[in-house]
Design a protein around this nucleic acid. Structure first.
Length: 428
RNA sequence: GUGGGUGUAGCUCAGUGGUAGAGCGCUGGAUUGUGAUUCCGGAUGCCGCGGGUUCAAGCCCCGUCACUCACCCCA
């Protein structure tokens, strides 16, 4: 019999791994709110046209990675990224009329039909944020410093901020021509993809990993050298702010991005390369001053970013404290009383696992260890008739006799007390 | 989409064409009601799937699927 399997590239998030995801999601919400962002949620399904217009027709995402389908007379797509939907919602709900600056963050599933790899899935999750209405380099710097704080808070080892600029539309068009002029003589040694890309999207060649492409890009012109005066002063100011904030960064003269909507500031943060291999970009983003207007709104400067949740989890796995149960109630005969005791403790905010399987006390206590319970209580007919049971500290291997009526108070006191000797201290 | 690697017990993996294994985990007992340790016992396998070669295939050949790494691209 052929058992049903999950769709390729779409994984199950099992109970033992979910805490690692939750920890990061919660830290993200906390840090973003602290910086004045508010959460918003948008649909997973959007009109296909939204992504084509926002991301760009000749990008790889739109050309071959979207999950698109026809539903009756609508052309729909599972969102491959978050910015387009947020911009659409910003316009549709006239959020720009409520306030001059709108700062939002979001988290959710995204879909791209790519070949899978470590840290790269077809259904994956992004944490992202957008700032609308603030054209200043201060907005860029404030977003970046917030992100660095976030990454530090979740324990990313040595995040590497990479900074670039691709100027405005006119600058980019001019640069594109000079880059094509530079690369065309070297076409012979370049990859097949790049030979095609020189016509469609030549900037992308700059971050190719193909050895021939890299050699060809040696000494290529950098867009940083042809920025116009406004782009240049924006970039310079951003760097001054980052320096003042003590945010370390590296300028990459060849940094480009796959989506068409970016302008001026571009950034990426890498980290934990040893764990992530080729997919070590934890987070990427930049300014997209033209997109809101492109999608039919009034001209509104904006900047945003998106981080890959799965990658953040891989990068910080070792920081997750395993979930614990406070009290494990083992039963011997008196299952009904065990349930009652368990629920009484729960009503005091104590997490309780109650074992009513009828297994041996030994097997039940083994399970108490397996769920990493702090305390265990064996409740049998004897305890019920005596009105007294042992509260066992599993780590310390000690045991105190406690009246059932005072069990909740005793357990609470034990949980709030210092960890027993020999117990591994769990950092938050 | 292109190119490599790997598929054997729940997990990590040995296995020279000739009777499928180890460690860990799970489970029962030693202790008739007390968990980490120790000792003794037990269960778990269409060896990914389908063909082929052979007296004989986990092992060789072909195909296929899955996983994985890199490229492409990206978070």
């Amino acid at each position: 019999m052929t058992t049903l399997r999950s769709v390729k590239g779409m994984k199950d998030y099992l109970p033992k791994e979910v805490p690692a995801y939750r920890r990061i999601e919660e830290a993200f919400a906390r840090v973003m709110q602290r910086s004045g962002f508010r959460e918003m949620r948008t649909p997973i399904v959007e009109p296909t046209a939204l992504f084509v217009r926002a991301i760009g027709e000749v990008t790889d995402v739109v050309e071959k990675e979207m999950y698109s389908f026809q539903h009756h007379d609508e052309a729909l797509t599972l969102r491959p990224e978050g910015t387009a939907g947020v911009v659409r919602a910003y316009l549709q709900n006239n959020l720009g009329n409520d306030e001059p600056v709108t700062k939002v963050f979001y988290q959710g599933a995204m879909f791209r039909a790519e070949r899978t790899q470590r840290g790269r899935y077809r259904q994956f999750h992004q944490l992202g944020a957008e700032v609308f209405g603030d054209p200043s380099p201060a907005a860029d710097a404030d977003l970046l410093v917030t992100l660095v704080v976030f990454l530090r808070e979740i324990g990313v080892s040595s995040p590497e901020v990479i900074l670039g600029s691709i100027g405005g539309k006119a600058t980019r068009a001019a640069f594109r021509e000079s880059l094509v002029d530079f690369l065309t003589p070297k076409l012979a040694t370049m990859s097949e993809e790049s030979k095609r890309r020189i016509l469609t999207n030549p900037l992308r060649i700059l971050d190719s990993k193909h050895p021939g492409d890299r050699a060809a890009c040696e000494g290529a012109p950098s867009i940083l050298d042809v920025l116009d005066a406004d782009d240049q002063s924006h970039f310079d100011a951003l760097r001054r702010y980052l320096d003042a904030l003590a945010v370390p960064y590296r300028v990459d003269r060849g940094l480009v991005r796959g989506l068409d909507y970016y302008s001026r500031t571009l950034f990426e943060i890498k980290g934990a390369t040893e764990k992530l291999g080729a997919g070590d970009t934890l987070l990427g983003g930049g300014r997209y001053d033209g997109l809101v207007e492109e999608l039919g709104g009034r001209a509104t400067p904006a900047i945003g970013f998106a981080a890959g949740l799965e990658r953040l989890v891989i990068a910080t796995e070792e920081n997750v404290a395993p979930p614990r149960i406070d009290v494990f109630v083992a039963s011997e005969g008196a299952v009904g009383r065990a349930l009652a005791l368990a629920n009484e403790l729960r009503s005091h905010g104590i997490s309780v696992e109650c074992d009513g399987r009828g297994a041996s006390v030994k097997a039940q206590l083994r399970r108490a260890n397996a769920v990493d319970a702090r305390f265990a209580i064996v409740l049998g007919d004897r305890e019920v008739s005596d009105g007294v049971a042992d509260l066992k500290d599993l780590a310390a291997r000690t045991s105190t006799s406690v009246a059932l009526s005072g069990m909740a108070a005793a357990a609470k006191a034990g949980l709030e007390g210092p960890p027993a000797a020999g117990e591994q201290a769990v950092s938050s």
